[in-house]
Simulated assay, not measured.
Amino acid sequence: MHRSRPVLSACLLFLLSCSPVAAQSAIGVAMDDFSYTDTSAEPTNQTAAHERRLAAFMAALRRDIGEGGRYRLVPSAQDGAVFKVVGGIQKTSTLVQWAKVAVINVGAKTLVLDKLYSFRGDNDEAWERAEVFVSREVMAALGTPAPVALAAFDFELEDMTAASAGASAASDATYLAEITGGVREALGQSGRYRIVDVRGEAGKTGALRDCGGCEASIARKLGADQSLIGVVRRVSRTEYTLGFQVRDARTGAVLARGDSGLRMGADYSWKRGAVRLISDRLIDSQQATDAPRR
């Protein structure tokens, strides 16, 4: 019996896109049609049959992913895709075909699935069996937790020394920018977070560390799930502390915070300390929390 046709898949996509609940909570998945190559050198031209079977394969795969409402199919990353599925099928002989399938975590720019499968036969039944197996593999890969959209705001300086020299303002700004860049890079490379662009928002309300949690509402307007603010407290020219706080963008609730305690070192060591603090107190702790659920 044939699997669902493209018409059924199109109807499913329409229904999902029209559902407010699905649009808000389902994880976006982009998937282009797989490529197909026949290098078997068989004398009979089977192009029409292969096009039909590939269309049925893709329709069934899209249907399987869309069922249950956990995922929604979208055209591209610009349309909200968290994952992208790509692949290709190659026929190498009368009885042997290969399917290469990859699933990309778009935010983290990492592969969560990259496998080569073989299946025997080139008839409707063989293609259907292959789709069932590939579908299970893709769905398992999509079970990887989607990255959290995080608005990581620029780190701020709280200078507690008696003399806040204007001459050092430029160098302070440079070191703060290095901290912010280093922290965002570490968060993005962890695969757990997708960094939301906050350019143009910093400074609109003054120091975010003193705004009573306003960073959460700013993050929500930017489409982020969470907000992060950080501060360097200069105690003396060679002593400082680092702190950060993460809030839920919807509720404003504090989800995580960390403080380095007093540290010794010049201002050029701020970046190293901040990245270490974020790695130890946020990234690693969250990964440890997630581990039992996988």
Rank of each mutant, 00 (worst) to 15 (best):
K109Y: 09
K204I: 04
V232C: 10
R5H: 13
T251N: 06
K109R: 15
V132M: 02
D154H: 13
P43R: 10
K115D: 12
A130C: 08
A165V: 07
S17W: 14
S190C: 09
E125H: 08
E137W: 03
F133D: 07
F244G: 02
A163G: 09
T94C: 02
V74N: 04
S279H: 12
V85Y: 02
D79N: 12
R257L: 04
E239A: 08
A108N: 03
I278M: 02
K91W: 08
T238S: 13
T180K: 00
C211E: 11
A165H: 10
R120D: 15
P20K: 03
K91H: 06
G258P: 14
R263V: 09
I104K: 04
N45K: 12
V254A: 03
V112T: 07
A291W: 11
V86M: 01
L116Q: 10
L282I: 01
A48W: 10
R192M: 14
V196N: 04
A22K: 05
C211F: 03
G191L: 03
R194W: 06
R272T: 07
R220Q: 12
R199D: 11
R62G: 11
D280K: 10
Y268I: 00
A99M: 12
R136Q: 14
V275S: 06
G223S: 01
T44L: 14
K115M: 11
T94R: 11
E125D: 15
L73A: 08
G212V: 00
A288W: 04
A219D: 07
S269E: 12
A126L: 04
T92W: 07
A288I: 06
G181K: 05
S76R: 04
H50C: 01
Q46A: 06
W270D: 06
Q286S: 10
V21S: 07
S19C: 14
C214W: 03
V86C: 00
T144D: 00
G107H: 12
R120H: 15
G143C: 03
S227C: 13
K271P: 09
L150Q: 03
M1I: 12
K109A: 07
P75Y: 02
Q286G: 11
G213F: 01
D290Y: 09
A170Q: 14
I218M: 05
G66Y: 04
S19I: 14
G265F: 05
Q287P: 06
R250C: 00
T289S: 09
T110K: 10
S164W: 02
Q286Y: 10
V183G: 02
R136M: 07
D290H: 08
D38P: 02
V21A: 03
E215N: 06
A140D: 12
R257G: 05
R263Q: 03
K109N: 15
Y71L: 05
I229M: 14
V246M: 03
E128T: 13
A291P: 10
A266P: 08
Y117N: 13
V103A: 00
A23F: 08
G68A: 00
E239W: 12
F153I: 12
S269G: 10
Q97F: 02
L113H: 06
S236K: 04
L187Y: 14
S285D: 14
S93I: 01
